[in-house]
Amino acid sequence: MDLRLDGVTVEAAGRTLVHDLSLDVPDGGVVGLVGPNGSGKSTALRCVYRALRPTRGAVLLGGTDTTALSLRDSARSVAALTQENGGELDFTVAETVALGRTPHLRGNAPLSARERGLCRDAMERMDVAHLADRGVLTLSGGERQRVLVARCLVQEPEVLVLDEPTNHLDVRHQVGLLSLLRATGLTVLLVLHDLNLAAAVCDRIGVLEHGRLVAAGTPTDILTAPLVKRVFGVDAEVVAHPRTGDPQLLYTVRP
């Protein structure tokens, strides 16, 4: 299912957080949003997973304006990893993952055998099955992040929206998660801070600055030394990955 942001503008408290953002994520494509802190990346994602309503413009899901869908209906198609880290109640890992079934279940209906299987698979794929009975508040940041991704998978979405999914993850789990995203075949829109990971995983990258999309294209088109200098204010050498050819940035840290 393809996802399209069409002229999305978000205004709050007199400020324009996102300005006329248009972006296409084709069916099965992986599109990344990058940009400095406060450039409106998370705000744009919030509009997709319906935590925020655009002031103007629309988010289209398979051609349908999401505002025409109930929150529940869009949650059956779109799963989101937000920046919230799991709340304040000490749910177990298994309980948290099972909450991914919420949009598919009526009221307090218990999980079916198939749904319990889904939870088990998702926990195994995210390497948290051994934590199933642990309270989420006892987990490390990275473990908790993997639990929340498992919750997204259990939701059986067609579109995944991820706000900094590699946060807190060690290198093995960062690479593992992004490989898994590619392999699921889902339509993915994600925010990443690590430009090298973005270059490795994304088909296309959009660059946000002060709420505006200032560049969009393939990683090779986008991740150039001048753009990185202009948007992020950082000097970087761009080299091609010796095996994949993806652009990779080398930073220089001077004393």
Partner: peptide, 27 residues
């Protein structure tokens, strides 16, 4: 291990991680 995993069976689990069959049961 995960970088070299075949694309058909992606998983974050290390190969030696033994899955608990009752893990998804509501605790």
């Amino acid at each position: 291990p995960s970088t070299g995993a075949p694309p058909g069976a992606p998983t974050l689990a290390a190969p030696d991680a033994t899955a608990d069959p009752g893990a998804a049961r509501p605790p």
